[in-house]
């Protein structure tokens, strides 16, 4: 009987394999990312047709990448949190707080007295600190990530408003000299802005971290099956804290990029970043339930959104139309994802 059933099982597997080869490809991360590349290319065709040379030029390509860089860095961090089974709604607020904290008069004077790198450290430490608070209260306080980071969203932006007194803090105001900071971030290397390089470097580090290190493996395990991870001896609470610190650091880096680009720190920086980042991650094929996702997918998701934004702007379309379209894309992507996921469950 067992032999029979084994043979049956094997036969079923065979037929299954042939029938769903296409589906399997779509489900595999490589296939999904290939699909995203196709989508991005199609969007580029639309851009080229509707906006002509204004779209298809090197300058515009750099514009798109510049647009993608800041939110891209945040999205890489968000990818880790979501793969690890969490969510962070407070990224935009953390960006605001970091930008404000590192541009206060005191910070700028301190940076002038010592080295501009102090501003960088301040922004990153503030981001990491917010992430630490999020992580500790989620992992050890047992607060649901959605609620905890929602609270952080409110509090961090509130703190940013208090510190900045709701005023825009300008780089180099009141005679401080932080030209070293400005020079560094506004430089071009090989004709490409530093901000784009930072995005590229963060993406590469993110990919290596996720795919080649124990940290990445644990992230997938904790998000994919927390109970199994715990029973395999992985310290899942501690790891959860690390994940939120990681996204906090990403927010700190994004804040610096924003400060450099706008030459200001403000409590209104990073508004709705949480939405853009989560959208990019989801479009990139990362499961919101955790356990599965890719950095390449997230990068493509970010590029798709920034290219769309660019096309809308070039065609003089309003921000509102753009938002409407974005929402529709998110729904479509998630529907597609669920279809594929449910089919993989039944096989």
């Amino acid at each position: 009987m067992s032999q029979d059933s084994a043979r049956l099982e094997r036969a079923e597997l065979e037929t299954d394999r042939e029938a769903s080869a296409v589906l399997a490809l779509l489900r595999s991360s490589v296939g999904r990312n290939a699909g995203l590349v196709v989508a991005l290319l199609l969007i580029c065709v639309v851009g080229a047709v509707s906006a002509g040379d204004r779209f298809s030029s090197t300058d515009n390509a750099l514009t798109i990448l510049r647009l993608a860089a800041t939110i891209g860095v945040v999205s890489i961090g968000m990818t880790f949190v979501i793969i690890g089974g969490g969510i962070d709604l407070s990224v935009g607020a953390i960006v605001a707080l970091s930008s404000v904290w590192c541009t206060t008069l005191a910070s700028q004077q301190f940076a002038e007295d010592t080295h501009w790198i102090m501003m960088v450290l301040t922004a990153i430490l503030v981001g990491a600190g917010c992430g630490l608070v999020n992580g500790l209260l989620i992992a050890y306080g047992g607060i649901v990530p959605f609620i905890m980071t929602l609270a952080m969203l409110a509090s961090a932006r509130g703190l940013a408003e208090i510190i900045s007194d709701r005023k825009t803090q300008i780089l180099g105001a009141k005679g401080t000299d932080v030209s070293g900071f400005k020079d560094f971030f506004n430089r071009e290397i090989l004709g490409v802005d530093v901000s784009i390089w930072i995005f590229a470097i963060v993406a590469v580090i993110g990919w290596v971290l996720l795919n080649r290190t124990t940290f990445g493996r644990r992230t997938v395990a904790v998000g994919g099956n927390p109970e199994a991870a715990r029973l395999a001896g992985i310290p899942i609470k501690r790891h959860t804290v690390y994940l939120y610190v990681l996204v906090g650091v990403a927010c700190g880096i994004a804040a610096l990029m924003l400060v450099a680009r706008t030459t200001t720190g403000s409590s209104t920086h990073g508004t709705l970043y949480e939405l853009d980042a989560i959208a990019a991650v989801v479009i990139g094929g990362t499961l919101l339930t955790g356990g599965r996702g890719t950095i390449v997918g997230t990068v493509l998701g970010v590029l798709i959104f920034s290219t769309l934004t660019n096309i809308f702007i070039l065609n003089n379309r309003s921000f509102s139309e753009q938002s409407l379209f974005k929402g529709a894309i998110i729904v479509a992507a998630v529907l597609l994802q669920q279809r594929l996921a449910s089919r993989s469950n039944t096989t």
């Binding site: 290190t213 395990a221 994919g224 199994a228």
Partner: peptide
Amino acid sequence: SQALLLDEAVYKNITVSSMTRFARLGFLDQ
């Protein structure tokens, strides 16, 4: 539900409890 990471490769399921043995400075020798 308690032991396996079903979507993950067999070898990752086997090494999950002894990952540090395969890692140098956190990098895994896959």
